[in-house]
Design a protein around this nucleic acid. Structure first.
Lengths: 314, 314
DNA sequence: AAAAAACATGACAACTACTGGCATGATTAA
DNA sequence: TTAATCATGCCAGTAGTTGTCATGTTTTTT
């Protein structure tokens, strides 16, 4: 077996084992101890962060976390990785920030000048825009960890009615529109609620958990079921069609007629009414609501509120 | 110089040069032609896609695009790259899709079983959620290319008033909320407008361009300048504070008082009024607008429209 | 048809690098 | 003090690499 191949095997072996003696490697790979010492010197020269402790109970220790075998990327693949990293730029807090930094640095430094320029220019032409960078989410990592390790948490949470204490089991976290959300089982209310991670003031304590809950994927798909079905019937002008087509929850429901106008006539969940009412408020004349009466009531009530707040006195 | 190092040098040299003869390598690195043949056999065995053409004018050709020197990633760094790729999952169209696929595959196959499981489980606990996957953006790559290559385009565009033809110079593209946007200089209107890439029906023709326009970064920052400054003064309840804090454009302007209520008193751009009016409509009693009168007028007008559409007859 | 330019492969001797064994030293814990 | 470690040097035997020469094959040019 060639020296290069053997060095690689040893590299992977020791970076997984972290602490070992020359004798162990000698036995494992059937090479003399003298050669082991020589190999370790080679690995050290190649940049592997490894140090030795002298004396009885001594040995070698590898500092870096487990290494992968060397990977040959093409330049285009490297660019695509930078592109993916760029999509994360607008999140203020991320669970893998330090790793992204170091991976980024390793890749960038092995690019040729020309490719470096290409990567630098990338953000002059393409970017991902998310707002809300200013909101800190310091507990993101802790919450994610609790979810992965299947733990329950007692948290201080800043809700509508002030800061309260909650006993929850996190299902997972997801990012949307620059903010981090956490669906979690609330032990007091005995159901899964949605929390904003940035509104968690502090984690009081965490405890082991034995019960099994749905995972994030299942929770997402369960959200698409209609719990309180209700018929939504709306007539849309051309502009109404155009705007509804850009609305995530409605785009598939819009039926377009030959003249460009259209309508929605579908069953949706009652809980969505509060979510879509601002859209129909904005659309005004461009959307004529036929059903449900509840949606019309919401719009009318809010319109009355506005008019009562700002009476016509000019 | 060790064989491994020399092989690497040759690998990088030939992957950049793509087509070469054994004689060239022999001259470049001062080794015998026989050895060059031996080295190329080695590289080929190592997986480099290289083929030979016999006879006069023959030579070797490397198929893959330019390679980077082998990179040693830690397992955590690899996970962070998968994490970044995951953030792109909810975009239906991406400019680097094939490269992301192949980079992903290279990384994944070099992970150990345990790490593979970790990556697989990642999306059970953390995900990025963007809506609107259903909207196709087939011309994304073409538009991005035109921006990078500094070209002008004639396009068919689906706007409010139907499909029209536009003569533009793309500044760049950016993703927001699952959709791709393109700021571009409109030669007819002589100013930069914002287009939705999915609403570009077709590209009629592209032409070289000599003029210099702002780049995407500059355009973004120029958008923060107030062109028509106007004072926004709003009194907020506790709930009003909470909701405004989640609003990208307002969060920095909110001042919180000791009792938890707050206010906004700042200069904003008049153009933003249409953008923020739905928020204050939604907030209703939780936000008392003091200034500007224009905002109150917008709210009142829309409220009247709603009430006239749905007269109280029950 | 012959010549030239290229890849392909084998044999062999000269050279270089690697390996194991042995010796010696230093450091640390039992 | 002894045992277990790392650290380093030396040397001879072994293994790997290289250059040279020879021989083929394929393709293009003359």
């Amino acid at each position: 077996m060639s020296k290069a191949k053997r060095l690689l095997d040893i590299l992977l072996f020791v970076s997984a084992k972290k602490k070992f003696t020359a004798q162990e490697i000698s036995d494992e790979f059937n090479i003399s101890i003298r050669t082991v010492h020589r190999y370790i010197l080679d690995l050290s020269d190649m940049g592997l962060p490894i140090y030795a402790e002298q004396g009885r109970n001594g040995g070698y220790t590898v500092l870096s976390s487990r290494l992968l075998p060397p990977i040959l990327f093409t330049e285009d693949e490297a660019v695509s990785i930078f592109f993916a990293f760029q999509s994360l730029h607008y999140y203020r807090d991320l669970p893998f920030n330090t790793e992204i930094q170091s991976a980024s640095h390793k890749l960038y430094s092995s690019l040729q000048e020309e490719a470096k320029r290409k990567v630098d220019q990338l953000q002059s032409y393409i970017t991902f825009w998310n707002p809300k960078r200013a909101i800190e989410t310091p507990l993101l990592k802790d919450v994610l960890e609790a979810a992965i390790e299947n733990k329950n948490l007692h948290i201080h949470y800043e809700s509508k009615s002030g800061t309260t204490t909650k006993h929850i089991h996190p299902i997972g976290v997801y990012a949307h529109d620059g903010l981090w959300y956490m669906p979690a089982f609330d032990f007091t209310k005995q159901k899964i609620l949605l929390f904003r991670v940035d509104r968690i003031v502090s984690i009081i304590e965490s405890e082991e958990n034995k019960e099994v809950f749905v995972n994030l994927k299942e929770w997402f798909s369960s959200n698409y079921e209609n719990k309180q079905p209700i018929r939504l019937h709306v007539l849309l002008s051309r502009e109404g069609v155009r705007q509804c087509k850009s609305e995530p929850n409605l785009e598939d429901l819009v039926v377009i007629k030959e003249d460009g106008t259209g309508y929605i006539n579908a069953i949706i969940d009652k809980g969505e009414l509060n979510f879509i009412s601002p859209l129909f408020y904005r659309l005004g004349m461009h959307a004529q609501i036929v059903e449900p009466k509840e949606l019309v009531d919401i719009l009318r009530q809010q319109a009355k509120d506005i008019l009562s707040m700002y009476p016509e006195n000019d």
